[in-house]
Amino acid sequence: MKKTNAVRREPFTDAQLLMTITIAIFIGMYLLAMIFLGGGFMHPQQVIDMLNDNVSLIVVACGLTIVMIGGGIDISVGAVTSLVVMSCVLYLNGGGNIFVAILLALGIGLAFGAVHVFLISYLEIQPFIVTLAGMFFARGMTTILSVNPQKVNHEGFANLRDAKIEIDWLGYTANNGNLIPARIELGVVVAIAIVILVFILLKFTRLGRGFYAIGGNQQSALMLGINVKRTRFMSYLICGLLSGISGFLFMMHTGAGNATNAAGMEMNAIASSIIGGTLLTGGVGNVIGTFFGTMTLTTIKKIVVSSGLNQPWWQSITTGGMLCFFILLQSVVLSRRAKKKKKT
């Protein structure tokens, strides 16, 4: 009896199960798109573009996943991204240094995270309200900085923006016979590095497990000897930091600042986390799932465009439908598991 116990694989935890479903659906959906839509979907560049266009969403969603695992929410991430973009653009155009710009980006992100968590953790104000105010503030500051779109005119930056990793064997031959290599932006490397780092943080560090503990049951976590306030502090701080990074990556991708940058990004990030299997109630989630959540969301949009549904409303309607599907799926899976638990 004991022997079999030792060998037996444990059943999936909630987080693993939800993540697996998402990854399977992403792969399935992409395969179907390859079979029925073909075209662009057959080229690796398609996936790479999906990454290129979404670096900042991926980074922001990672931060949000951490906060959500800890049982909180941060809806200011998109606005902070936008503020970072605008500040950095103006700073660079004023003749600034790129490294200082990076520090500025991180600094703004950290500052927002720190103020948020101070209000949430030490003054016990609801996170939704605090970060909502943070969102208003960041959006307002962005327009105060500049209502008009600003393009970066900075030499060093142009090099950074145009730096791309070219991989020949992933490329394809164009109609005129030229080989067009796959182009990966630098931001993608940073984003994937962040996903891996956050994965390690969540899985193998004391702090990361602490996030799960405070999200699972705050009172219990306290009794187990976890410094709940400090752990929560770190979760928002990291989220803020990632928002800062996201802003810089956003600027690297677009090369311009605009007051409407990253509009609605917070909701896209929340949606990515949810599709990836993070529960808003806290304690359950996985950053790899979040990554695939972002990719799934993007794939749906691409599929809609490729299938010829050209009216502007179809993208968000299908996104909504997809979100609905995943949310229902989560609910059904979890309630089934709960029932099974009851019986055993």
């Binding site: 444990e10 935890t13 909630d14 497990r209 602490g210 799960y212 503990a213 999200g215 699972g216 049951n217 009172q219 219990s220 976590a221 009794m223 187990l224 000897g225 976890i226 304690g283 359950v284």
Partner: peptide
């Protein structure tokens, strides 16, 4: 029970210490 139901048994025994 003042443990975290979303963590594993082992984690509940060692977390925070």
């Amino acid at each position: 029970i003042t443990l975290c139901p979303n963590l594993t048994v082992a984690e509940n025994m060692f977390i925070g210490r």
